[in-house]
Structure formats: C-alpha cells, structure tokens
Amino acid sequence: MSRALIRENQLTADERAARDGAVPPKLSARAKVASSGPVLEGEGWQVEISVHPLRTRLEAFHTSGAVVMITADSRRRTKSGSARGYFLPAPGVGAWRRLRVGDLPHFARHLSLPPGAPEHLASGSKCRCGKVKYPTAARAAAALDEVSALRAAEAGPRPPETRYYRCEADDRVWHLTSKPTGYTRSVPLADAFGRCEGAPGPGRHPDVVIGPSG
C-alpha cells in the first residue's frame, strides 16, 4: 500500500474537508444546546430544555448538587455560535462559572473541568433589577423561607416576600418578591419559554420551576 493511500486512510472527516476546500457544517446554537442533552443524560443528569423561537435554555441537575446551564439566543452574535455554558459546583456553593461547550463531556462525567482548563466566574449579567440575586430556584426558595421567618417576627408596613421568580433579563438569576403576579415586560421570560409560575410538577427538580404563585 502506498504512503499516499495510508495517509488518506488516516485523515479525519474534517481534515479531508480542509484538504478539499470544503468547510464542515457548523452546528447552530440551538443544535448545540439540543446535542448537549444526551451527553448529560448519559452520565445520569436530569435534563430539561425550554425552547422559544428566539431563545433556548438547557438546565441539568446532578445528584451531587452540581448544576449546568446552556443558553442560546439567536439575537446574540458570538464566535461560539451564540451558545453559552455555565456550571455551579453545587446549589449552595459559590456563583455561576463559565463552561465551554467543548468541555461539557468531561464535566458531565467528572464534575470538574478538564485538566488545565481555566476556571472563570460568569460575568456580564443583564439583570438591572437592583434586587438580591440567587443563582438557582432552590437557593431562592431557601432564602424565601429565611426571609418569611424574619418577617413573621417583625412588625412593619413592608409586605412580606411570598414567592420567587426567574429574572426576565438573565436566566442565571432568581429574585424574591411580594407581588402576587409576575412583572410585565414586552416579552416576559416566563412567557417566552412557554412556562408559567407554579409549584413543581411530579418528578421535577426544585431548581427547574419558577416558584409558587402568591
């Protein structure tokens, strides 16, 4: 067998495409989000995906308490194809950290970034509510219990917080509120994803829901 033929058999599909001048198709942001689901489920994660014509969000929860979120926004133009990944080591520990989609298989299996991969806190929140931020629904629910106990021991005109909700400007942020219904926006996040405020359904992870209605 000639060396040229041996080399041809060793080329990957991408190497052949580069040699032939063809560009391999790139996954869309939504496809990147969708393809991440089976990777996580294969390692035992509980996965839920919310889809809207403009936005897609994947949330995954591990029995250890680790959380992964991958979002895609068709209005966002980035080199990463508009798909962005984040992780929490555990619901009660620290803040969201950045997760490259390419590092997801390793993180899904080992609950850590690949050796040598830099770890950065997620930044650039679009939340401008001026309220206390909680990274997950479970963290917000725990805070609501604490605040409710404090309010019950106090006497004052301020209405007590009665529920928690996901910030309409940032998927990674939850707030507490005393208002019985959601905030009005041109495209509320809850409406955009086709999700309503309510108690968790059967088998749902507590971090998935928006919170009990007041």
Rank of each mutant, 00 (worst) to 15 (best):
residue 1 M to E: 07
residue 1 M to S: 14
residue 3 R to M: 13
residue 3 R to F: 05
residue 3 R to W: 06
residue 4 A to T: 06
residue 7 R to K: 08
residue 8 E to N: 10
residue 11 L to S: 01
residue 11 L to Q: 12
residue 13 A to E: 15
residue 14 D to T: 13
residue 16 R to P: 00
residue 21 G to P: 09
residue 22 A to W: 10
residue 25 P to K: 10
residue 28 S to H: 05
residue 28 S to K: 05
residue 36 S to G: 09
residue 36 S to C: 14
residue 36 S to M: 14
residue 38 P to W: 06
residue 39 V to D: 00
residue 41 E to L: 09
residue 42 G to Y: 02
residue 42 G to L: 08
residue 43 E to C: 13
residue 43 E to H: 12
residue 47 V to F: 11
residue 48 E to A: 11
residue 50 S to W: 14
residue 51 V to Y: 04
residue 52 H to Q: 12
residue 52 H to G: 15
residue 56 T to I: 05
residue 57 R to Q: 11
residue 58 L to P: 02
residue 58 L to R: 11
residue 63 T to N: 06
residue 64 S to H: 07
residue 68 V to P: 07
residue 71 T to I: 05
residue 72 A to W: 00
residue 73 D to P: 03
residue 73 D to S: 11
residue 73 D to N: 11
residue 76 R to G: 00
residue 87 F to R: 08
residue 89 P to F: 14
residue 90 A to R: 10
residue 90 A to T: 08
residue 91 P to Q: 09
residue 94 G to V: 11
residue 94 G to I: 10
residue 97 R to W: 03
residue 99 L to S: 10
residue 105 P to K: 09
residue 107 F to M: 03
residue 111 L to Y: 05
residue 111 L to W: 08
residue 112 S to L: 01
residue 113 L to Y: 12
residue 115 P to L: 07
residue 115 P to R: 01
residue 119 E to D: 13
residue 119 E to N: 04
residue 120 H to G: 00
residue 121 L to C: 05
residue 121 L to N: 11
residue 124 G to C: 06
residue 125 S to V: 02
residue 126 K to Y: 10
residue 129 C to N: 07
residue 130 G to C: 09
residue 132 V to L: 06
residue 134 Y to W: 07
residue 135 P to A: 05
residue 138 A to I: 08
residue 138 A to E: 15
residue 138 A to N: 09
residue 143 A to E: 14
residue 151 R to W: 09
residue 151 R to Q: 10
residue 151 R to V: 00
residue 152 A to F: 03
residue 153 A to V: 02
residue 154 E to R: 15
residue 167 C to L: 03
residue 168 E to K: 10
residue 171 D to S: 12
residue 174 W to G: 02
residue 175 H to Y: 00
residue 176 L to K: 05
residue 177 T to P: 04
residue 177 T to N: 04
residue 178 S to F: 14
residue 187 V to W: 06
residue 188 P to N: 11
residue 189 L to W: 07
residue 194 G to D: 04
residue 197 E to V: 14
residue 198 G to I: 02
residue 199 A to C: 04
residue 202 P to C: 04
residue 203 G to W: 12
residue 204 R to M: 03
residue 205 H to S: 06
residue 205 H to V: 02
residue 206 P to I: 01
residue 208 V to M: 11
residue 208 V to Y: 09
residue 209 V to L: 06
residue 211 G to C: 04
residue 211 G to S: 03
